[in-house]
C-alpha cells in the first residue's frame, strides 16, 4: 500500500476518482501475498501491482467498471480453472482473490 500512496495523492489532487484493488486471498502458488495493492485512476493510470503481471490488465478493467458503472466494491477471483468464467489466469497455477473498490472512504 505504501508504494501507491504518492500516486493516489497526486490523482486525487488532480480531482480524479481512484479505485483500489488489494489481494485478499491467495491459494496455491502466486507471486504476491495478501495485501499487495494496486490503484487505478479514472483516467486509467495505474500504480502498484497485484501479481507478476498476469492479471493486472483484467484488474484495470474491473477497477474502471467499479469507478464508472457500478460504484460498488467487488471481489474478483483470478486463477487456473476449468470454469470458462475465469478468462484471465495466473500462469503459475495459483488463484488470487482481489477486492476492488472505489476509494471513497
Amino acid at each position: 500500500m505504501k508504494e501507491i500512496l504518492a500516486d493516489i495523492d497526486r490523482w486525487r489532487s488532480e480531482g480524479k476518482r481512484v479505485a483500489v484493488a488489494r489481494v485478499v486471498a491467495l491459494e496455491g502458488s502466486g507471486p504476491r501475498l495478501p495485501g499487495a495493492a494496486m490503484a487505478v485512476s479514472e483516467a486509467g493510470e495505474v500504480a502498484g501491482s497485484v501479481s507478476g503481471g498476469c492479471v493486472e490488465g483484467a484488474v484495470v478493467t474491473e477497477a474502471l467498471e467499479v469507478l464508472n458503472e457500478t460504484g460498488r466494491p467487488k471481489l474478483c477471483t483470478f486463477g487456473y480453472s476449468d470454469d470458462e468464467a475465469f478468462a484471465v489466469g495466473l500462469t503459475c497455477g495459483g488463484t488470487i482473490r482481489v477486492f476492488v473498490e472505489p476509494l471513497d472512504w
Binding site: 500500500m1 505504501k2 500512496l5 493516489i8 495523492d9 486525487r12 476509494l103 471513497d104 472512504w105
Partner: peptide, 14 residues
Amino acid sequence: MSELYDVLASAIRS
C-alpha cells in the same frame, strides 16, 4: 469524505 483513508495513509507514512 476520506477521513479513514487519510488516517490510514498518514499512519503508514509515519
